[in-house]
Amino acid sequence: MKIDLHCHSYYSDGVLSPSEVVLLAKKEGCDVFALTDHDTTDGLIEAQQQADKSGLSLVHGVEISAMWSNMTVHILGLGVDINNEILQMGLKQHQEFRQLRAEKMARGLGGAGVFGALEKTQAIAKKSMITRTHFAQMLVQEGVCKDMKSVFKRFLTGKKPGGVGGKWAEYDEVISWIHAAGGKAVLAHPLRYRMTNTKVKRLLNHLSGAGLDGVEVVTGSSSSDEITLVSQWAKEFGLSASVGSDYHGWSGQRVRIGHLQDMPSANETVWRDW
Rank of each mutant, 00 (worst) to 15 (best):
A66D: 11
M67Q: 13
M67Y: 06
W68A: 04
S69N: 15
S69F: 09
M71S: 11
M71W: 04
M71N: 14
T72L: 08
V73S: 05
H74D: 05
H74C: 02
H74V: 01
L76M: 04
L76A: 04
I82H: 04
I82A: 06
I82Y: 04
N83T: 15
N83R: 15
N83H: 15
N84Q: 12
N84V: 10
E85C: 08
E85V: 11
E85W: 07
I86W: 07
L87S: 13
Q88R: 12
G90R: 04
G90N: 08
G90S: 08
L91H: 11
L91E: 07
L91G: 11
L91C: 11
L91P: 09
K92Y: 14
K92T: 15
K92A: 14
Q93M: 12
H94Q: 15
E96A: 10
E96M: 12
F97Q: 12
F97C: 07
F97A: 10
L100C: 14
R101V: 09
A102F: 01
A102N: 04
A102K: 00
E103A: 01
K104W: 06
K104R: 14
M105G: 02
M105A: 04
A106G: 08
G108V: 05
G108H: 07
G108C: 07
G108L: 06
L109Y: 00
L109F: 00
G110F: 03
G110D: 13
G111R: 09
G111M: 09
A112D: 09
G113Q: 10
V114R: 02
F115W: 14
F115K: 15
G116F: 00
A117G: 02
K120H: 04
K120G: 03
K120T: 02
T121Q: 03
A123K: 09
I124H: 00
I124S: 02
A125Y: 01
A125S: 06
K126R: 13
K127C: 01
K127D: 01
K127A: 00
S128Q: 15
S128K: 15
M129V: 11
M129Q: 14
M129L: 15
M129S: 11
T131L: 00
T131G: 03
T131N: 02
R132M: 11
R132F: 09
R132A: 11
R132L: 13
T133W: 00
H134E: 01
F135A: 10
F135R: 11
F135L: 14
A136Q: 03
Q137V: 02
Q137D: 09
Q137H: 15
Q137G: 12
Q137R: 15
M138G: 05
M138V: 02
L139Q: 00
V140D: 03
Q141K: 15
Q141Y: 07
E142V: 02
E142P: 06
G143H: 05
